[in-house]
């Protein structure tokens, strides 16, 4: 068993398959803790975890906060409005202040790509990227991989279809890096206006139609379509988007019968995903949320200097 050597978790692009496996393996006993009646272990007692969120988020922030609490770390939440990114205290100064107050782990969500890289260069504390602009959202991808591995046993050889606004999706980027490193095939599909240039270099295969992307897929990952993208002229209407790229029961039948349906949330029911699919037998959307806490516990544990837990 290898040990964790990195100070930070900034993205999945630079992680090895072994490192990803270590995180996923570490999350297994963490999930077991979540199933106990008393969900608390003393592992990180005396450690301080700060969530620093420059973007509104309920589920990711709460997930990290609970992960810290279940491990007995002290946690503090700082939510800052996006406007303060432009004026007021700089990210580096905020980070230095937190470091001076003794934070051991800083979890950063930021609207701009690369902000966690800047933070990690500035402070000695461990930095976890909780989503930066359209760059990466590694903990989301790790919880997605954990969920799939739990259901399918293995990631290698699987076909994963990611559907939607790939251009603006950090979830898609992290999942492409993560799943391909673990030996899965990743297909991406969405409006041509929302497909990043030369996405093939990441190892993903571009599909022109949702039917092509879904055929034979083991995992179907639907992305949230941001309704304001329509005003930006990236697609003509919600109606046409739903018609071309929405997942319904009929389309899902193209995938393997035991295909998993995933969504990082929050969902636009009736737009990118029909309610009967979101709540159907193939859906693992709620389990993703539970597994998110387990994976984040694993990361807090590893970044705080642990090997495998004896929990």
């Amino acid at each position: 068993m290898m040990n964790w050597k990195r100070k930070d978790l900034l993205g999945l692009k630079d992680l090895s398959a072994e490192e990803i496996k270590l995180i996923l393996d570490t999350a297994v006993p963490m999930k077991e803790i979540l199933g106990r009646r008393i969900k608390k272990v003393p592992t990180l007692r005396g450690r301080t975890v700060v969530t620093l969120f420059y973007e509104p988020s309920t589920r990711t922030r709460t997930s990290f906060e609970l992960a810290a609490k279940y491990l007995s770390a002290d946690s503090v939440n700082i939510s800052t409005s996006a406007s303060s990114v432009v004026k007021g205290e700089s990210l580096k100064d905020t980070a230095r202040t937190l470091a001076a107050m003794g934070a051991d782990v800083v979890i950063l969500r930021h609207p701009m790509a690369g902000a966690p890289v800047l933070l990690a260069r500035t402070i000695r504390a461990a930095v976890i990227n909780a989503g930066d602009g359209t760059h990466e959202h590694p903990t989301q991808a790790l919880l997605d991989m954990f969920t799939v591995r739990e259901k399918k046993g293995e990631l290698a050889g699987l076909t994963v279809a990611i559907i939607g606004d790939i251009l603006h999706s950090r979830v898609a980027r992290s999942n492409i890096w993560g799943f391909t490193k673990m030996g899965a095939r990743v297909r991406v599909c969405g409006p041509a206006t929302m497909m990043p240039p030369e996405i093939e270099v990441t190892g993903a295969q571009v599909c022109l139609s949702i039917e092509e992307a879904l055929t034979g897929a083991d995992v179907v990952m639907m992305l949230r379509i941001q309704l304001e993208r329509q005003q930006q002229g990236l697609f003509p209407s919600i109606r046409e988007y739903a018609r071309l790229f929405g997942l319904n029961r009929e389309r899902l039948s193209l995938a393997r019968p035991d295909a998993l349906v995933m969504h990082p949330g929050p969902m636009n029911r009736g737009v990118e995903i029909s309610p009967e699919v979101a709540d159907g037998v193939n859906s693992v959307i709620n389990e993703q949320v539970t597994n998110g806490v387990a994976v984040r516990m694993a990361l807090l544990y590893l970044l705080s200097g642990g090997g495998m837990p004896d929990a």
Partner: peptide
């Protein structure tokens, strides 16, 4: 520059 590096880095590109 808009190209594979902007895709990888998640930064808005200038074609």
């Amino acid at each position: 520059h808009e190209g594979y590096m902007s895709t990888v880095l998640g930064l808005p590109g200038i074609p």
